[in-house]
Deep mutational scan, measured.
Amino acid sequence: EPREEEAEKYIKRANGDYDKAQELAKKDGNEEIAEAIKEYKKR
Rank of each mutant, 00 (worst) to 15 (best):
E6Y: 06
E35R: 08
Y10T: 02
A34H: 04
I37Q: 00
D19S: 06
R43K: 15
R13M: 15
Y40K: 06
D17F: 02
G29V: 02
D19Q: 07
R43L: 14
Q22E: 14
P2G: 14
D19I: 06
A25D: 01
N30I: 04
E5Y: 11
I33L: 11
Y18W: 08
Y18N: 02
Q22K: 05
E23A: 08
A14S: 05
K12F: 09
E35P: 02
E32W: 12
D19V: 06
Y18A: 04
E35H: 08
E1L: 13
K41F: 08
K38L: 13
E6F: 06
K27T: 10
G29A: 04
N15D: 09
A21T: 00
R3Q: 12
E35N: 09
K12H: 10
Y40E: 06
D17Q: 03
Y40P: 00
Y18D: 01
K38E: 15
R43P: 05
A25V: 02
K42D: 14
K26F: 11
D17M: 02
K38V: 10
D19T: 07
E31F: 15
G29H: 06
D28C: 02
K26N: 08
G29T: 02
E1A: 13
D19H: 05
E35L: 10
Y10R: 00
I11N: 02
E32K: 10
K41I: 08
E35S: 08
G29D: 05
R3T: 14
E6N: 07
K27D: 10
E1N: 15
Y18Q: 03
K12Q: 11
K26T: 12
E5F: 10
K38Q: 11
K12R: 11
E39Q: 09
N15M: 06
K20Y: 13
A34F: 06
A34G: 04
K42Y: 12
Q22G: 06
K42W: 08
Y18P: 04
E4G: 08
K20H: 07
Y18L: 09
K9H: 11
K12I: 11
K42Q: 13
A14D: 01
A25T: 01
E8R: 13
E32V: 09
I37G: 00
E23W: 10
A14N: 02
N30K: 15
K38M: 13
N30Q: 12
A36K: 10
D19F: 05
P2N: 14
K20L: 15
R3E: 10
E23I: 08
K9W: 14
Y10H: 01
E31M: 13
K27C: 04
A36Q: 11
K38Y: 10
A34N: 04
P2E: 14
E39K: 08
E32M: 10
D17S: 05
L24M: 14
A34P: 01
D19L: 06
E8W: 13
P2L: 14
Q22R: 06
R43G: 07
E5S: 09
E39R: 10
R43F: 11
D28Y: 04
E32S: 11
K27N: 12
E5M: 10
K26P: 01
E23S: 06
A21C: 00
E1C: 03
N30H: 13
G16Q: 04
K20N: 05
Y10A: 02
A21Y: 00
K38D: 07
L24T: 04
E35K: 09
D28S: 04
G16A: 02
E32Y: 09
I11G: 02
I11C: 04
I11Y: 03
R3L: 15
A21P: 01
K41Y: 08
I33F: 03
E6V: 09
G16D: 04
K26V: 13
K20S: 06
K41D: 05
K42A: 12
